[in-house]
Amino acid sequence: MTRKLQKETDITFHIRRYNPDVDDKPHWQKFIVHVEPGMTVLDGLHQIRETQDASLSMRYSCRMGVCGSCGMLLNGRPALACNTQIFDIASKALTVASLPNFDIVKDLVPDLTPLFSKHISTYPYIVRDDADEMLNPTGEFFQSPDELTEYLQFTYCIKCGLCMAACPTMATDPNYLGPQPLAQSYRYTKDTRDDGFNLRKKVVGGSHGAFRCHYAGECSNVCPKGVDPARAIQLMKRELVLDYLKLRKHRTKSAILGKPEGVKRRPEIPEAPCFTKE
C-alpha cells in the first residue's frame, strides 16, 4: 500500500466509554489528539491516557501485532490498535470502540471469555489413543513438509477475537462457535499426528457449528495474521460432508520415528534437561 505523506495534525478521537461502576450503558467521549506520522491508534490512546484522561481503560501488551490483546473497533472495523496507523484510516476524526459481539468489561476492554471457552470445546490439541507415547515419548512423529503446509497457515492464529467481532453470524447467534474455534478445529483435524476428528466433529458438525457459516468472509478480511478462517471453515465443512457420506479417506496417524542411530552428539550441545512436570 502506498502511504500518503502526512503532516502532523489534530485528530478527534471519538471513544466509546463504559464504566461498570457508574454507567448503565456506553456513551461517546471526544478527545483531540495531536497526531504525528507513524503514530498508531494505540499510541494515540496512550497519549490520551497520559495527557487527558488516565481513567481510559484498554488492553494491550506487545505493541507489535503479536500478542493479540489490543483488538478494537476502529472506524467501524475490527483491527489491532497497535497494528493500525492513524493516518491510514483517519484524516480528521476516528471512532474507537470495544470489539462487538463480546460483552464490555470497561471502556475498550472486551470480555473474551466466550472465545476461549468455545476454542477449548473444539479439542484444539493433538488427540491420540496412544496416551503412553504422548506422556513418555520414544521418538518424534513423522510429518512431511507437504503435510505441514496443509495446516500451517491456521497455526498463526493469535486469538485476538477480531474474526469473532467481524462475523455477522456471531452477531445474531451467540452460541455459534465462530471463526476462530472452527479454524482451529480444522487446523488440528488436518494435522497428520492427530486422530481426533471423530471427537471434534460432534462439536463442529452441530447446529451451532461450521454449517452456520455462510461465507461473509469478514473473518478473513480482518485477520491481522492472514490466517484465513473462512477457508478453514469451508474445508472443515468438506471434511464433515465427506465423513457423512462415508467418503472421507481414512488416514493413518503419523508413524513414530525412533531416536536417530549411529549419530554422535556434538560435544558443545548439552543433553536436554529432565522433565520438570510429571
Partner: peptide, 14 residues
C-alpha cells in the same frame, strides 16, 4: 467488575 458486563452484540445490525 466481573459482576457487571455491558452486552455488546450488534444483532441484526451486524
Amino acid at each position: 467488575l466481573q459482576d457487571k458486563r455491558c452486552p455488546n452484540s450488534i444483532g441484526v445490525w451486524g
